[in-house]
Amino acid sequence: MEKFEVLQSTAVPLPIENIDTDQIIPARFLKATSREGFGENLFRDWRFDNAGQPKADFVMNTGRYSGKILVAGKNFGCGSSREHAAWAIYDAGFKVVISSFFADIFKGNALNNGLLPLQVSDEVLARLLAQIEQDPQTTLVVNLVNQELEVPVWEEKISFEIDAYKKECLINGYDDIDFLVNQKEAIEQYESNRPWAY
């Protein structure tokens, strides 16, 4: 997993609530057996028409916005457990998703892939979306080490929460699998001492 400490970037606003994983990556694109290449179908049916032509009014096609940060409406990533959603966002070049609420499984999947789900309040989210829409050149600084989202144009630093273990993983590029495999002895001991086993 790639390491993450500080990211400075402009952002892409997507002010829609309850964006589900079927919008992020429709099921018909889940047939690949590798992790690569899902980015080209990110937001497929919002981004492209039936003939595969870009829809001019979609936020990723207008040419107005760019950057490695996606700022999206409340309850981002609801629906299916497909990790392909996190892969698609990452593969399309985003390193951070900012929203005021994330669905559980998506959040875990993002963290397992070095994609930071950054939760802010509804109020901050509304201000951020308005700011970016008004000035697409607005730069945001995501400082994971200090757990701060800096908006230089506001002269404001907004702190955010993240699980301490997950933060360490992101900063160092570690993942759970190494940790768990190292617990083998404890796991075997647990298995041999269970009062009821299946």
């Binding site: 457990s81 499984i105 875990g108 999947n109 397992n112 759970d176 699998i177």
Partner: peptide, 8 residues
């Protein structure tokens, strides 16, 4: 439900 990293 779990993601594919968790499946691994």
């Amino acid at each position: 439900g779990i993601g594919t990293s968790q499946v691994a």
